[in-house]
Nucleic acid binder design. Structure first.
Lengths: 178, 178
DNA sequence: ATAGTTTCTTGACGTTCGTCAAGAATATTG
DNA sequence: CAATATTCTTGACGAACGTCAAGAAACTAT
């Protein structure tokens, strides 16, 4: 889809960032001025409401990584991006991306595909949250996202599903004892 | 942002569709092959789960109108698009849009802006759903979307907020009697 | 105006959830 | 291996929600 020249120009702009478990890759109130892709490691995207963590997303290798809302709108992040393990990610600054979009129409189109793809992910998550019960959401996770269950603490998954840690523990008990 | 020529080409592709209250503009299991913009009227986007309606969105004049998930992914719609009043909307077929994207890079870029904008809307809605209580969500609606309260039946708003009609009735009682 | 339809409210009751607290299980570190 | 920290489970209890059913209120249409 892209020519060699276009790929080269894009690759030139990506920079590898290493991180340690617990590192904050984006703090609240900062404006997210980059997008990235996970190289190695696990990352979570969450906010804090009344002292409670609300996890919006987990990211694994090859996943898109950004506070895309803050990135697009230029508003301060309400969320943290935090490393759940050691690892690294490829980073592209907003400045460079805008320049690539201006200089190369095909990269601009790639940006459209990216936005469309990210729309699909979040729209599907919204739909599931509206129509499924917590138990159904957990079962979906078992079928579609089992690596998450193995590599992320359960209380974070609970938050991702929109329930308390205790409730998820009881959901699991319900499921696995019948 | 677009030249006269580009605007003209786009306008050529839009077609006005009239509808009556209760009309189904997109049925479940159909593939959404258009995007549109509301000209006149009110429209809702909803699905049915276990006999219950789950409203995902309401659209007013100038709002973007499509099952964008079905449109982008080419999968069958799980939702209905239904007219809540008489009205009309401007419609652009997928075929024409793809052609416009191919022929005019600036329209392609406009498509990126559109996808980005729609991402922001759904991402914010997801965030609110994860972090706010039903009562908080209703209060947000009062402040940010009051025309919705005046022009849409309350039981549909309840569904949009993710609660039963009775619960919203009780939330309103809680709020307005103290 | 009146009859019919739709929408909203209220009460009763059972279920699920959140919170707090304690302890068990698991993982990490020295 | 022992000590510590983290995560998970369980119980008890109260709050919020869903459902069913009945009636009130608002809206439509003739």
């Amino acid at each position: 889809m892209l020519s060699d020249e276009e790929w080269f120009q894009m690759q030139q702009c990506f920079e590898l960032f290493k991180f340690k478990k617990g590192d904050i890759l984006l703090d609240t109130n900062a404006i997210c001025n980059f997008i990235g892709f996970v190289d190695i490691g696990i990352i979570r995207f969450f906010e804090i409401k009344d002292g409670n963590e609300k996890v919006t997303a987990f990211w694994f290798p090859d996943d898109f990584l950004s506070n895309y809302r803050s990135f697009l709108s230029g508003t301060k992040s309400t969320h943290y991006i935090e490393a759940l393990s050691d690892g690294s990610y490829w980073r592209l600054s907003k400045e460079d991306l805008w320049r690539l979009f201006d200089d190369y129409p095909k990269i601009d189109r790639l940006g459209r595909k990216m936005a469309e793809y990210l729309y699909l992910i979040v729209a599907e998550r919204l739909d599931n949250l509206l129509k499924q019960s917590p138990e159904e959401r957990y079962k979906s996770l078992i079928n579609n996202n089992s690596r998450l269950l193995q590599q992320v603490p359960q209380y974070m998954i609970a938050s991702y599903l929109g329930v308390s840690a205790e409730t998820l523990s009881r959901i699991r008990k319900r499921i696995y004892t019948k």
